[in-house]
Nucleic acid binder design. Structure first.
Lengths: 224, 224
DNA sequence: TCAATAAATTAGCCTTACCTAAAAATATTT
DNA sequence: AAATATTTTTAGGTAAGGCTAATTTATTGA
């Protein structure tokens, strides 16, 4: 049976995406209010839309259990997230946008509909596993790798990690990164943590040791 | 004075684009009915929208003169056309879509908003001058080259031209093109036209002479 | 347990961008 | 110039997807 993914409206897609994300990072009940907060709109509007999504069999909704995506809804949500993250990689790597600019544009691009688009983009980009914020890109079949990213300051002494993103996108931080020659994919070895002020001694690209502050180490997202 | 290009709705952008195109290929009066035909909607709806566009100073409308774009409206229309054609190049060259698939996806992509997007895409693609249908890509400043494209059968004997697109996107035609090793940018020299059946003798990439039918020569778009 | 508070829902409105049907204005023919 | 046809415009309506305000239902905690 071919479960054709019918085209959703932009608004429906945003609801599915938000519901997916809310369901991810906590096993809590997903309420209309939570969705309204995430979408920056009104709970009353959410209730309307939830009815529509239930009718379309994209979600299940019982006051007791809150909102849950159906398999169909989850599939669509994951495809949107897949497209979002792939486009982010494209914008950063090919169009030279910066980390803090890609998200907003990807919010628009994720809604472009075409059956082959995600897979072709994926191939063109060389099947990236993570987006510029270090979040995993769902596979064509809708599987998503675990998120291993942490902040540099939590890496074990002696371990080498790879930069996947930043938590701070201020230009002063980004300029400092540039000065240290750190970008996405850069390998950093954590040499030692200094207990006194929690600063961290690292080696960038196996180069000479450098000391960075706790603030810095807290702002850099890495994969171990 | 910075004439900020305010964001238009998708619908407004489509009106501006259609009005631009209608104004291009004929010096005729652009009427609500003509616009309705082009957009596949109702003249009554068009009249509504024309009022809105007049209010926004994107068009001028007098029953006597019909609709005309203001400078502001023209600027926006050209930017949308620029994005459309750049995305078409991207889809064809980078994502390996075929000539007949790119238009529909570009119809969506042309509405992605970001101040730097068109220019960055342009640079990434190597500043292409024409899209896969042989239509000129407006420059960043909103200038558009003339359209020199014609069909192969109208090329002068002895002249060499370059393939810019196809008029027929049937798979039988596309397969035949593949067999003849003809793609976008391929150089073809028109050796001789046969009066009897209007077939045409050509040399592809300065290779051996081949004879193609009038139907074929009418279906291939080229630049002289 | 029962008030107090918070969340969910309903009811009624708004805007956008369409629609149809009818009326008004223009064009075209004869 | 009148009659006919065509366009344009007006009037009133619809579906999406928001909104506020009021009501109902749950939750909490005293």
């Amino acid at each position: 049976m071919t479960t054709a993914i019918h085209i959703q409206t932009l608004s429906e897609e945003n609801y599915l995406k938000v519901i997916y994300h809310l369901g991810k990072d906590a096993k809590v009940k997903i309420s209309p209010t939570a969705i309204a907060d995430a979408l920056n709109n009104n709970p009353a509007s959410v209730v309307d839309m939830l009815k529509k999504l239930v009718d379309k069999k994209l979600i299940q909704y019982e006051k007791s259990k809150g909102v849950r995506l159906t398999e169909k809804g989850k599939k669509i949500a994951l495809l949107i997230i897949r497209k979002h993250r792939l486009w982010e990689v494209f914008l950063l790597e090919k169009l030279e946008y910066s980390w803090d600019e890609v998200h907003e544009i990807a919010e628009q691009l994720e809604h472009i509909h075409n059956p082959q688009l995600a897979d072709r983009l994926d191939k063109f980009l060389g099947f990236p596993q993570y987006d510029p914020h270090g979040d995993p890109i769902p596979s064509a079949s809708g599987e998503m790798a675990d998120i291993y990213k942490t902040i540099l300051s939590e890496v074990t002494e002696g371990k080498t990690c790879q930069v996947v993103g930043v938590k701070d996108t201020s230009s002063s931080f980004l300029q400092y990164l540039k000065k240290l020659d750190i970008g996405i994919g850069t390998k950093i070895t954590l040499i030692e943590k200094i207990p006194f002020d929690n600063s961290v001694i690292v080696s960038v690209k196996n180069g000479p040791n450098t000391t960075v502050s706790k603030l810095f180490a807290d702002s850099l997202l890495v994969h171990e």
